[in-house]
Structures are given as C-alpha cells and as structure tokens.
C-alpha cells in the first residue's frame, strides 16, 4: 500500500547571528546548515495495517508524514502510495488518503460542524446518497449527535478532534494518517477515538499510520511499530518482537520481616534498598524470580514478593533514552 525507498529530506536552515553585529553579518553573508530531517528511510506498509510511528521531538515524524501525503517533495528516494507518487499525482492521491493533524484544524472555525462536512462533501464530489450514509455512520460511531450543530470554535478539544477525524473519513479513504490525534484530549474522548480507529481498521480495512507521543495509545492499537530518531528508522517491528527483544528486564520486589542484610547475588542487580524492602532487577534469560528467591539465606522471613514486567511503554521509553543498546 505504502512504499518508501531510501527516502531522504534535507532542509537548508539559515544560521541566525548572535547579537547585533552577528545579525548584521548574517544579513550580508548568510550561513546555512543542512539538516537531514529524514535520512535514507525505507519501509513498506501493507493494506490494513495499523502502524505506530514514534520518535522523540524533532526526530522526523512530521516530515515523513508530509512526504507520504505529498505535501513535501523528497530530496532523494521515492514514495509510492497505492502505486502512485503522491507529489506527482496529488489530486488522485488526495482521494485515497485522509489526514488529521492534532495541532491544527481542517474545519471551518466559525461555522457549525455540519457545514464543514457539507463543504468537504462538495469538495470530494460525493453523491448526496454516499454523503448521507457516511455522515450518519460517522456521527453515530463517534457520537457527535449533540454537538454537530455547534460552531467549531465552541467545541471542546475532544469533540473537535472527533469532528476532525470524521472530516478526514467522509470520502472513505483507504489510508488514514493521524498526526498526534489525542494530544490534550480528555480520557473519554481519547478512548472513543482509539476504539473507533480499531473498528475502522477491522471493518473497513483502512490502513492507519498513527504518530503520537502517547505510548499507551500505541500499545492499545498498533500491532506494528516504527521508531525514527534523528531522521533514521531505528526500529521496525511488531509489539511482540519488541518485547521479545528488549523486554527482558524484570523487577523483583521483596519485602522482608525485618531489616535487610548484605546480599550478593550471582545474577541480577540490586537497584534499590529501602527499610525492609529490596528491588532486584534481572534478565529473564539468565535467571527466574523463583531461583532468585531461592538464593536468599534461609531463616529470613519474607513477607511479600511481587514481579514487574516490562511493557511496550517502558521498553520504548528506554529505547528513546538509551538507544537500541541500552
């Protein structure tokens, strides 16, 4: 469905001078720095997938989305969406995709929400019947009945975001790009949006590319995850594969009857000690919690034991912080 091959995008950024003198100097002979926002990226997305596209701020997420949607032209490499080059075949491509930007609105600010849908329906040349059907379905799925006649500027962020998603899907695109769709949205609306995305994917086989900072969202809906950092894809794997590869660390928390004691363990590492509690981190390939407990000296009364496993959220947070080797 979507193919990116050796995709790169460079920006020339003018270096601003420091102070009044520097500013004057930069006016006369500007210095440029080339930034590789997207650097030799390749991936392939099949029809019907939901992709979580992740990365820290400024990693190149938005630039990739702009390249895929045809807003920007690549410096080198190629993008193909449904066998088409988006920048070359912009209009045809537009019918295939729906885009939601969480940070800005595609709705007409002063008009009632329903008016935006009508204008978009005319723009995408939908037939009356198809428009009515699609609108009805979206309104009931996203529960927009009570605010569809309100001007957009009066909607809460959660309501507006549901409106944005409906607006992007009115023409039934097979591909949906969501750029930070849940930022600042309340929990109820957020869950509704996430459930909707899953349903849409299951029933209509819509391919979804979701970029977000919210890792919990990704864990919920995205079976496959791509992580970009400094313009390069550093990871492209399924949730299971990621957990398999990186989620090996477990944390054992032991509470003793009385004060702890010096303990040396052949494997595992004591990461924290507090009153009569002990936290031991270990690798599940090297040992098990059962073996660890077995190594405590006998006679020490153990009051409680608990084990925490890595989840996708904590694993990805680790990758952000330490990279792939951390």
């Amino acid at each position: 469905m979507i193919k990116a091959l050796n995709l790169s995008k460079e920006f020339k950024v003018r270096q601003p001078g420091q102070g009044v003198l520097g500013k004057l100097k930069s006016l006369a002979s500007p210095e440029y720095k080339i930034i590789k926002a997207v650097d030799d990226v390749s991936f392939e997305i099949q029809s019907g997938e939901i992709i979580g596209y992740l990365g820290p701020n400024g990693a190149g997420k938005s630039t990739t989305i702009k390249l895929l949607t045809g807003v920007l032209e690549p410096t080198s490499g190629s993008v193909k969406v449904a066998e088409r080059i988006p920048t070359r075949d912009r209009t045809r491509n537009a019918y295939e995709i729906g885009v939601v930007y969480g940070q800005r609105s595609q709705l007409w600010w002063d008009l009632p929400l329903i008016d935006s849908f009508q204008i978009l329906s005319a723009m995408y040349k939908l037939s009356e019947l198809r428009y009515e059907e699609n609108l009805e379905r979206l309104v009931s799925l996203l529960q927009m009945e009570e605010f569809i006649d309100q001007p957009v500027r009066k909607l809460s962020l959660g309501q507006r975001m549901r409106g944005e998603i409906a607006a992007a899907l009115l023409h039934e695109p097979p591909i949906l790009y969501l750029d930070e769709p849940t930022i600042g949205v309340d929990v109820v609306s957020k869950n509704r949006i996430l459930e909707f995305i899953q349903k849409l994917n299951q029933e209509k086989e819509v391919t979804v590319i979701l970029t977000t900072h919210n890792l919990a969202d990704v864990e919920k809906v995205c079976p496959r995850i791509l992580i970009i950092d400094q313009g390069r894809i550093i990871l492209d794997a399924s949730q299971e594969q990621i957990l398999e590869r990186f989620g090996k660390k477990r944390l054992l928390e032991v509470e003793f009857e009385d004060q702890p004691f010096d303990l040396t363990l052949p494997v595992g590492e004591i990461v924290k000690q507090e009153e009569n509690k002990l936290w031991i981190q270990f690798d599940r390939d090297q040992t098990s919690a059962f073996d660890l407990v077995g190594q405590f000296p006998r006679g020490r009364g153990i009051r409680d034991v608990s084990i925490t496993e890595d989840n996708i959220e904590s694993v990805i947070a680790q990758i952000y912080e330490h990279g792939l080797d951390g």
């Binding site: 949607t69 045809g70 807003v71 209009t91 885009v99 800005r104 723009m123 995408y124 040349k125």
Partner: peptide, 24 residues
Amino acid sequence: RNGEYDRFLVRPAHPIWQILTSGF
C-alpha cells in the same frame, strides 16, 4: 506561517480554490 498548506495539499481541490473558500 501556520502550516495551512499542509492541509490544502492533501485535498483534491487546487489550493487556490481552497483559500478562496477559507474565509469570509
């Protein structure tokens, strides 16, 4: 400045039409 072109360019209508319909 507000990046509105990112949205004009993902729609089928020509950006000029979209700007003409963007306000009153």
